[in-house]
Design a protein around this nucleic acid. Structure first.
Length: 401
DNA sequence: GTCAATTCACATGAAAGAGACCACGGTCTAGTG
DNA sequence: CTAGACCGTGGTCTCTTTCATGTGAATTGACGA
């Protein structure tokens, strides 16, 4: 056994790979030149440039769909900016925070705590009044006489979870703060996001706005080619593969991140099949695999109650084979609960759980009105047919514990 | 037949509770000199 | 005298429950043609 494994690893090491260096396919990678975002980068640079003279740049609000290059463009320009600032010893610091990361910055407390930590304070993950954390953050800000650029990625997530309190307080810092100044760059996937904000926050936050339109298929091709050059070996990609990748990604709103992931997974599949080239067929497989992995991952990491609800949805649909409604799911869920000795949640809660599955893309739950017979969600499953049995037995296993 | 009122079966919102986790300050205890 | 153990208080955070209000069209029933 041990020997067999050794041979396996040995073979793995010697195996030919289509990859040269995967780095350029990762989403955190920042290439030397950014394609098809020249205008935006220039605009950002224009807005941020005053920082080099010690002035406060305007607050900036950036929005566009996922995978449109927002984060990349911002990180790229701020990186260049700080390089220059460092060389000229200009007091400037950028802080990047992703508000979507669970348990990192998705509440007011955690956001401020995260910021304070970036400034070298140590803040406990909980237990302190939010007031205290603010104080500590302000103190850290004041300590050095510096300009700060604050990048809040996925800022919409923060606001619709916890309101715009934190943003309001942040935008007001400059009014009180004299030693250091702070500019805020907000990045949002949601185009309508600013509309829901407190007017004071809105006018302050979006002194400048930049829109990132989605990439089209040709632009995606260029980007993929650029990345592929450094990450794959020569001639490892068959004719038409890049084009197909780009076409897939362009189909849903030009998401470059997805295009890159598709290419990377296709490469991994090619490796596993001992192929020395990535073929179009591998792209198809990759697309299926990404989809499948996502669904399996979601199902298996979901809490018990959620799994029960999902199971109820699946089994009531396979029984009836027509569209199903919240009430039926809830009834089945209740009986499953008492069978498995799990306490029963209220329908209110189950209703929310169903709509969360809707957001995850696992089911499609549309609110319809059946006239006299009430209003409910029309639920159907979005899981591919061939995956259903597997998901179902996965759920059965984990519920029956 | 037409039209407004009714009615169903939930959706959707707001608020608040339960329980886990945690920091802080004060008090108690045991060990040390 | 002091370091560490052990409370009580007060804070955040997530998941839920409770209470309240909203809602779109099939159905109903009054009305007039």
């Amino acid at each position: 056994m041990e020997k067999g494994l050794g041979v396996f690893f040995e073979a793995f090491l010697n195996k030919e790979s289509v990859f040269f260096d995967k780095k350029a396919l990762q989403s955190s990678y920042i290439p030397e030149t950014i394609l098809h975002r020249e205008d935006q980068v220039k605009q950002i640079a224009n807005i941020l440039a005053p920082a080099l003279r010690g002035d406060k740049p305007s607050n900036l609000f950036v929005y566009g769909k996922t995978g449109a290059g927002k984060t990349l463009a911002i990180r790229y320009t701020t990186q260049k900016l700080t390089e220059i600032a460092e060389r000229e010893s200009i007091p400037l610091k950028t802080i990047y925070v992703n508000c979507k990361l669970k348990r990192s910055a998705d509440t007011e407390y955690r956001l401020i705590a995260q910021l304070a930590r970036e400034l070298g304070k140590s803040i406990p993950p909980t237990g302190l009044p939010t007031e205290e954390v603010y104080k500590s953050f302000f103190k850290a800000l004041n300590r050095q006489n510096q300009n700060y650029i604050l990048i809040l990625d996925e800022i919409d997530q923060l606001v619709d979870k916890t309101g715009d309190n934190a943003l309001y307080n942040l935008t007001r810092i400059n009014e009180e703060q004299t030693e250091s100044q702070i500019s805020i760059i907000g990045i949002s996937n949601n185009l309508m996001f600013v509309d829901g904000l407190d007017p004071r926050v809105r006018s302050s936050l979006s002194e400048e706005e930049i829109l990132f339109p989605p990439y089209n298929a040709l632009q995606l091709q260029a980007i993929l080619k650029q990345r592929a050059e450094t990450s794959f070996k020569k001639d490892a990609i068959e004719q038409g593969v890049i084009e197909k990748c780009a076409a897939y990604a362009a189909r849903d709103h030009g998401d470059a991140r997805r295009a890159l992931e598709l290419l990377r997974v296709a490469g991994e599949i090619a490796d596993r099949k001992n192929s020395d080239k990535i073929t179009i067929e591998h792209i198809d497989l990759a697309e299926q695999k990404i989809d499948r992995d996502r669904i399996i991952d979601i199902t298996s990491t979901q809490p018990k109650q959620y799994q029960l609800v999902l199971y109820s949805i699946i089994s009531s649909q396979t029984q009836k084979n027509t569209n199903i409604f919240t009430g039926e799911v809830y009834e089945l869920y209740k009986s499953l609960c008492s069978k498995t000795n799990i306490n029963i949640l209220t329908q209110r809660r189950v209703s929310d759980i169903i709509s969360e599955f809707d957001m995850l893309g696992m089911v499609n739950a549309k609110v319809i009105s059946k006239g006299r017979y009430g209003r409910t969600r029309n639920i159907s499953i979005e899981i591919p047919e061939n995956l259903l049995p597997r998901i179902k037995s996965m759920l059965e296993d984990s519920i029956r514990v």
